[in-house]
Design a protein around this nucleic acid. Structure first.
Length: 351
DNA sequence: AACGATATCAACCGCAGGCCA
DNA sequence: GTGGCCTGCGGTTGATATCGT
């Protein structure tokens, strides 16, 4: 059947988003919530197609995104889930809160695939490569310049990531013995089929590496655990294990909101965004702050380091927990948002 | 310092599928 | 049942960063 293009391409901008565009999109979505994506660019005053806006939002601007490299645990989860689900990145991403399908797909293609190949595991089938395959792989693919791979050793090659001093700063750096153990786990075949149940395309790992069922226990690292709100409603309890993509499945997200007790208003005179909660704690975000935050996004790495430097509390996370009783706000779809500065979450330092 | 090779990841593209009239 | 609209998904591309020579 004939299809209209997703948008009128004439005069629409493509390529990297500017801080100004980000700002427009964020302030529109935060004040109006997600509506018809096709209408978003027009309403937000952007020369982009709706698809591009959606992509930018879901992959980059969403406040509940975790940023930075995948942790070892997340990587293992991706490998396990990929063994069961294949290239269904969105399904895999739904098991990793704060991660997007695009991010996982990229990480798979750039890191995990190589790692598995080096370990003699076929990244497609997750089975050991035959000798011929391995030989072919080696001849096709000369070792990257940043890989120090000694074929006489069973161990993983040192990748750039492992050598990169930036990576050494990561809080989840694991000691050597642990690392060995983790490598062993990674080299193990994917979970036996006995340990998994596939229901309606959802995979339930009964006996995960850690002995948890991933559908029963949210795959959330300790630092992501949120303090429960004072009056948990049934809807809010379900959201605790919801995936990063869960909100987007709602057709009427205003109804799904577990609402923070915030009042939203945009002061157009001063381009300020003002958040007011019941305790009369008012946070105002003016244009300059916004731009500064956007600038920090652009200079993400530097900013992270600076931030760590500034407060000396890189490992200390700052969390935001909304009140479930609160009235409607577009933001409440991020009621599980974790502002984890050590992981460089939402770059906008908003709340 | 300059250049080329390689790695990374944000963004694009096209298709599939759900929903609705 | 059909056609149109919309969103989501997965593969791919291209700009930029990083590294080696």
């Amino acid at each position: 059947m004939g299809r209209q293009p997703c948008c009128d391409k004439v005069g629409l901008k493509k390529g990297p988003w500017t801080a100004e565009e980000d700002k427009k999109l964020i302030s529109f979505l935060l004040t109006n919530g997600q509506c018809c994506w096709r209408a978003v660019p027009k309403l937000a005053g952007l020369l982009r197609c709706g698809k591009s806006c959606r992509l930018r939002w879901t992959n980059y601007l969403r406040p509940d995104l975790k940023r930075g490299l995948l942790s070892d645990y997340e990587e293992k989860m991706v490998i396990d889930l990929h063994a069961q689900l294949g290239n269904r990145w969105s399904k895999i991403a739904s098991h990793l809160p704060g991660r997007t399908d695009n991010e996982i797909k990229n990480h798979w293609n750039t890191h995990i695939k190589k790692k598995l190949k080096k370990m003699g595991i076929d990244p497609v089938t997750h089975k050991p490569l035959s000798n011929n395959q391995q030989i072919q792989e080696q001849s096709n693919q000369t070792p990257p310049h940043n890989v120090d791979f000694d074929p006489n050793h069973d161990e993983l090659p040192k990748t750039q990531d492992q050598n990169n001093p930036k990576e050494e700063e990561k809080p989840d750096t694991i000691p050597e013995s642990k690392e060995r153990e983790e490598k062993m786990v990674m080299m193990m075949p994917p979970p036996l089929i006995d340990d998994t149940i596939i229901m309606d395309d959802e995979i339930i790992i009964i006996n995960d590496i850690n002995g948890f069922c991933t559908d029963e226990v949210p795959i959330i690292e300790p630092h992501e655990i949120l303090v429960p709100s004072s009056d948990p409603s049934p809807s809010s309890s379900s959201s605790s294990s919801s995936s990063s993509s869960s909100f987007s499945s709602s057709n009427n997200f205003l109804e799904d909101l577990q609402l923070p007790d915030f009042e939203w208003c945009c002061n157009n005179d001063h381009n300020d965004i003002i958040i007011n909660n019941n305790d009369n704690n008012v946070a105002s975000w003016n244009d300059d702050d916004f731009i500064n935050c956007l600038n920090s996004l652009i200079n993400d790495d530097n900013d992270d380091h600076d931030r760590d430097h500034d407060n000396g509390e890189s490992s200390k996370q700052q969390e935001l927990v909304f009140d479930d009783n609160a009235p409607s706000s577009p933001l409440s779809q991020y009621s599980n948002m974790v502002m984890d500065y050590s992981e460089s979450s939402w770059p906008y330092g908003f709340f």
